[in-house]
Design a protein around this nucleic acid. Structure first.
Lengths: 341, 341
DNA sequence: CTGAAAGCGCTTACAG
DNA sequence: CTGAAAGCGCTTACAG
């Protein structure tokens, strides 16, 4: 690989001038510029990013932290990632998916390595040691999700509270008065207090109480098999329920299939509405589910904007944004039946 | 952030000695080591990876190139990524998912930046300009997948040829003689000659001809909706077919649902076998599909091994490995019916 | 076993 | 507009 010095030699200018030319950091005469560009072309020169990073103190790489333990990425997470990467590129950065353990120590290692200019954190827990660690570090960061206490912490998140309210009210309008929330909040996720689950449960409890509805909550695994099991359990435990909110992307299609195996016809006997999910997932189910679509693209884009604004020291007000889900109809929503299935 | 020089000052040793201590690159007396370690602790010192990378010429970061255009990652791709990342960590490297356009130019940019020590390439086309570009560069690389001509190119791939043979023979054993292969090879993928599709089609043609079967090929979109459409089309065009191989992970569940909407009962009227897919996807379908499981974990692991072996200059023979799929039963395989549906 | 010094490939005041 | 030189934070022959 040719170095900047090689280019300077060939062009008969100084190393500094090559740098000025490449970075447009100082005026360079057209003649000199031409010489330098010619030399770069001849040598097929590419600036070494590591040398540049050391001198500048910036690598122009952003890391999207991804919990390696979680062996499944939902379509919605993939959309976060894709839109975040696009936005980063648009603003002159590379965004990479950086898998790592959930421990704060791993975060420290990355942030203090100097390898990345900033961090976007996904899958945030209510009390997340990684966020504490990020706050302690001097590296800019932004959350997709949010902790319990968000003081001074830049984040973008789904407005789960309003999504739940919307979902419940849509079911009420169809005459449903006995609802169940199905989520994926068991096991690991509950321990750490996974934000989306905790917030959705709380909102569900409050909204249903306020509206005077019967309500219950169930949890299951993040897989189709988990969804089928949930359906079986649901049929046994909640024979009077006619409306279900499901926030468990991987289990959704299995749940719908399981309901039908248990004898329910959709939407005649029961209505199902997926929350914070995607059309992709909803259309995997048979029949296609109605869904409140997670604003994944927007979250990824805004998360990266929040991060880069900090890096570039735009002293904008601290970004703390909640984005709404949007409703997409499906064949799983219908009027409440007169009698139970 | 404290630098190595700060540590040296505090410990009253030279910068070099701190480096020797950290890297175990030269013997250091226990006394000196203790002083250095004490100083590091006090300053909460972390080695700056950029400085280290510049001096060593190694960043210890590997990139898994991921085509940014493709807005969906199949469960199988996620498994590649996860297992590759685990294996990299085990061997002292960080593996990150690096989204980029499909153009060779983007590859050049990355490889010549010095930011990564090696590259694993996914979603390989039969004639892939990115591979040409990687070969031209001096950076070590490995493919998950393979090009048409694999001379001198390290790769690991699914043995699609034998998977097709296995699949066809399983259907033959059940009495099926009229088969259709459903894939996702339309549009973009065909233009570039996407390896898995091309190889599977070729093998399907050869095996069915050799066994004297009726055979046809259909292609559809990579989505559940695409799968439903395919099923409709299939019902109309292939009324005599009783066995389907499907290699289109995103469309699988929708295809199975669509068949049933079209009046087929599975597996009485028709058998469906997913190829190079995952149990995850298979169990999204109702009923659960039988599947030849892609050896994604093994491919990710072996791909990274192949890459790191090159970086570490282990002059092993060029790794070129084909890994077999494994069969997992499902409720979509049954004896061929006497009459047509 | 330890240290002084050169060098990795850049950027950027500073001087002209 | 251009250049000589210091410096970013490390590693590693080389010398002792």
């Amino acid at each position: 690989m040719a170095t900047m010095q090689d280019v300077a030699n060939l062009a008969n200018v100084s190393l500094a001038t090559v740098s000025f030319t490449i970075n447009n950091s100082k005026p360079v005469s057209p003649k000199t510029r031409a010489k330098v560009e010619q030399a770069m072309k001849e040598l097929n020169y590419r600036r070494n990013a590591v040398g540049s990073a050391l001198a500048r103190g910036r690598t122009h790489v952003l890391a999207l932290l991804y919990p390696a333990l979680q062996h499944r990425l939902s379509p919605t997470s993939v959309r976060f990632f894709t839109s975040a990467a696009d936005q980063a590129r648009l603003r002159g950065y590379n965004l990479v998916l950086w898998p790592m353990s959930n421990e704060a120590e791993a975060v420290t290692e990355l942030t203090s390595s100097g390898l990345v200019d900033g961090v976007v954190l996904m899958e945030v827990q209510l009390d997340d040691p990684r966020v504490t660690e990020l706050s302690r570090s001097n590296i800019p960061f932004a959350l997709i999700g949010r902790t319990r206490d968000t003081t001074g912490i830049p984040f973008v998140d789904v407005n789960f509270e309003s999504a739940v309210e919307t979902a419940v009210d849509r079911l009420i309008q169809l005459g449903h008065t006995n609802l169940v929330l199905v989520d994926g909040g068991g096991g690991d996720q509950l321990l750490g207090g996974y934000g989306p689950v905790a917030r959705t449960r709380k909102a569900f409890g409050e909204v249903t109480a306020q509206r005077g509805l019967s309500a219950a909550i169930m949890s299951g695994l993040h897989s189709s098999a988990g969804g089928r099991d949930l359906a079986k359990e649901f049929a046994a435990q909640h024979p009077d329920t006619t409306g279900v909110l499901i926030m468990n992307e991987h289990a959704g299609p299995g749940f719908v299939a399981g309901l039908q195996q248990a004898g329910y016809r959709l939407p005649r006997d029961i209505s199902v509405l997926a929350i914070a999910s995607s059309v992709d997932t909803a259309s995997m189910a048979e029949p296609e589910m109605a869904v409140l679509i997670s604003p994944a693209d927007e979250l990824g884009r805004l998360g990266v904007d929040a991060l880069i604004d900090q890096i570039d020291k735009k002293d904008d007000p601290l970004p703390q944004l909640l984005i709404e889900c949007t409703y997409s109809p499906g064949a799983t929503m219908g009027k409440a039946p007169r009698k139970k299935p």
